[in-house]
């Protein structure tokens, strides 16, 4: 509720963690065990939560000239965590995931405490968990919680042969009664999906996490099968490269700032000497939220993973790191920013 008197100040706890174990047994995927650097117990979290790891800037001229931050789903014990477990797919060179893949046991990392945005719905009659690739991570904690509390849950994991993240965790939960199916080709998954979507008990909630194409496949199939959108929950991961966008003009602090194509609003504000608190610079952490006014006829393109749908529709705030205004003819500025 930034900007609302008396309601801000909900700063997420910054945790000092140390890498205590690494597992590189699945090609391209690294699983890490992180403990509190001072040996304290870690805050419990809701299944489906993530932490945001702070990634330092690389050396000058490298692919990572500024510090960044990446969100990773927590896969371990959630109610009484002695450590936090995450799994990271190595993406582009020089990015945050490559930095994680270069960490060693004993290295210190800083994380923003758990944030829940993909929680199991307690009233669901059943929980259908569909994950692809590394997207299985938030579903592992869903399934663990379901087994603990005796909730009806079924998980299907689509992954390339030999690249099944968390296979051991899933096998252990299956041994304790969870239904787990593994599929290694897309055709089999598509066939299974249509069958699954048509045979669930009333009141089942569907949770889906994976690459954008996978989630589109699942949500479109669910819609075709008559699933209400309110029973279909998706969790995005891996921020894909955003298009550079068109240039636009911003009215801020009594002046006009030009935001060129390929430059973010945050960078343009910084270049104009205006400070905006920020952290991940990719629309995940929520730190760079700014209050905005969209002029008559103007349009705001949010592109972040932080605000919910209602907030995006209201158009009163934006994430300066990824959100853009569309250039509108006539108006003096395409967006007003209130710092």
């Amino acid at each position: 509720m930034a900007g609302t008197t008396g309601m801000s100040g909900s700063v997420r706890e910054r945790l000092r963690l140390v890498v205590v174990a690494l597992d590189d047994s699945v090609p391209g995927i690294r699983s890490l065990v992180l403990a509190d650097a001072g040996g304290a117990p870690l805050p419990p979290f809701t299944p489906g939560s993530h932490v945001v790891l702070e990634v330092p800037a690389g050396p000058p001229g490298s692919a990572r000239p500024r510090p960044t931050a990446n969100a990773y789903s927590l896969t371990g014990e959630n109610a009484h965590p002695l450590d936090y477990r995450i799994s990271v797919l190595r993406a582009r060179e020089g990015g945050g995931s490559a930095w994680v893949h270069d960490l060693a046991v004993g290295d210190r990392v800083t994380a923003l405490g758990p944030r829940s945005g993909f929680a199991p719905v307690q009233r669901a009659a059943k929980h259908l968990l569909l994950g692809a690739g590394i997207g299985v991570t938030p579903l592992v904690s869903h399934l663990r919680s379901a087994v603990r509390w005796g909730r009806d849950a079924e998980l299907v994991h689509l992954h390339r042969s030999g690249a099944g993240a968390h296979a051991a965790d899933l096998a252990e939960l299956a041994a304790r009664g969870a239904r787990v199916t593994t599929v290694t080709d897309r055709e089999s998954f598509t066939a299974l999906l249509d069958d699954l979507l048509r045979t669930q008990p009333f009141g089942t909630h569907l949770y889906c996490c994976g690459p954008a194409g996978f989630m589109e496949l699942v949500t479109a199939a669910a819609a075709r099968s008559g699933w209400p959108a309110s029973r279909v929950h998706t969790e995005s991961f891996g921020v894909e490269a955003l298009d550079p966008g068109a240039p636009f003009q911003v009215a801020v602090a009594g002046r006009t700032v030009e935001v060129p194509a390929g430059t973010s609003l945050l960078e343009a504000l910084e270049d104009a000497g205006l400070a905006v608190p920020n952290l991940c610079r990719q629309g995940v952490c929520g730190e760079c939220r700014v209050s905005v006014t969209v002029p008559e006829g103007g349009r705001l393109v949010h592109r972040d993973l932080y605000l919910d749908d209602d907030e995006k529709r209201a158009g009163r705030c934006a994430m300066a790191c990824v959100s853009r205004a569309l250039p509108t003819s006539g108006a003096a500025a395409d967006l007003e920013v209130h710092l």
């Binding site: 509720m1 609302t4 309601m7 909900s10 997420r12 706890e13 805050p43 419990p44 979290f45 809701t46 939560s49 405490g113 758990p114 944030r115 829940s116």
Partner: peptide, 16 residues
């Protein structure tokens, strides 16, 4: 409505 929005966004560990 503002209180409701606030509560909807409350995260574990935060106490108000």
């Amino acid at each position: 409505p503002r209180a409701r929005e606030f509560i909807l966004r409350l995260q574990p560990g935060q106490v108000y």
